[in-house]
Simulated scan of single mutants.
Amino acid sequence: MHLEPPNTRLVSFKDFAKHYLMIVLSILTALGLEAWIEHTHHAHAAAEASRRMDGELHKVLGNIEQSIAVNQKSLAALKALDAQVGADLGAGLDDAAINRKIQARRDDFQLNVNWPTLSSVAWDVAVADQSAGWIDASALQRYSTAYTAERELDTWLQRDSTIPVDAPHLVNTLTNLQTGRPVDPSDFQRSLRQMEMMLGSDISRLHVAAARIAPAVRGPAAGQPAD
């Protein structure tokens, strides 16, 4: 900031007060303008960060909903096969007859698990460039909750979702089906139940994550793609 000293003699207190007031007003004006420019910059950065996060979370929510639909379809097929095997066992059919019916539907014995594509790039950028700190507190809380739910879902899917399934035994059963070898019907049903439990747990977790993410997705504008 550059201040010009008065180029005339101050011959009275009135002249001094006048020049002093002009200097003070100039300083206050400059500070106010600087504060306004900084506020405008922060507001723009916060709005841009919000736009990116809205778009990103909208995509994530769509991916989760798509995964739920795919997994529910897979679960329905497994349950139908399970019901058939259970009914045959209950009716006292011999293993050979049950195996023929299992072989006829062997394509339904698939652990077709769909996991959503998750992304937190917009949130990471907002934290890195500090624009997250300029977002309204209530909105920031919603975003934080949504991205926390996303991280927790990703951790669970990667580490815990497959716990109910005996993978080696599942591969052995699938191999027997593909090569036309007989399977033990009761053992086969236990494998089905494991797969159903895994899919059911995944679907439940996906629903919980979607319910926590949805409040942060704001209206139609949220559908704009995140760059």
Rank of each mutant, 00 (worst) to 15 (best):
H41F: 09
H41W: 08
H41Y: 11
H41N: 10
H41M: 12
H42F: 07
A43V: 10
A43N: 03
A43C: 03
H44T: 08
A45M: 05
A45E: 10
A46W: 04
A46L: 09
A47P: 00
A47G: 05
A47S: 07
A47N: 09
A47Q: 07
A47R: 13
E48C: 00
E48A: 09
A49V: 09
A49K: 04
S50P: 10
S50A: 15
S50L: 11
S50W: 05
S50Y: 07
R51M: 05
R51A: 14
R51S: 13
R52C: 01
R52W: 01
R52Q: 12
M53P: 06
M53L: 03
D54Q: 07
D54K: 01
E56L: 00
E56P: 00
L57F: 02
L57G: 00
H58W: 11
H58Q: 10
H58M: 04
K59N: 00
K59L: 08
K59I: 01
V60K: 04
L61A: 12
G62T: 02
N63Q: 08
N63G: 06
N63Y: 03
N63D: 05
I64F: 04
E65V: 09
Q66K: 07
Q66V: 06
S67K: 08
I68Y: 00
I68V: 07
I68C: 05
I68H: 03
I68L: 07
I68S: 08
A69S: 09
A69V: 12
A69I: 06
V70Q: 05
N71E: 11
Q72F: 11
S74P: 11
L75I: 01
L75F: 04
A76R: 12
A76M: 11
A77Q: 14
A77L: 14
K79A: 14
K79M: 12
A80I: 07
A80E: 15
A80D: 10
A80Q: 12
A80R: 11
A80W: 04
L81G: 04
D82W: 00
A83H: 14
A83Q: 15
A83I: 01
Q84E: 14
V85R: 04
V85M: 08
G86L: 10
G86V: 09
G86K: 10
A87Q: 10
D88R: 14
L89D: 01
L89A: 06
L89P: 01
G90A: 15
A91S: 09
A91Y: 08
A91G: 06
A91I: 12
G92V: 13
G92E: 13
L93N: 09
L93Q: 09
L93I: 11
D94C: 10
D95N: 12
A96W: 03
A97H: 12
I98M: 15
I98Q: 13
N99M: 11
N99F: 14
N99T: 12
N99C: 13
N99Y: 04
R100G: 15
R100H: 14
R100F: 03
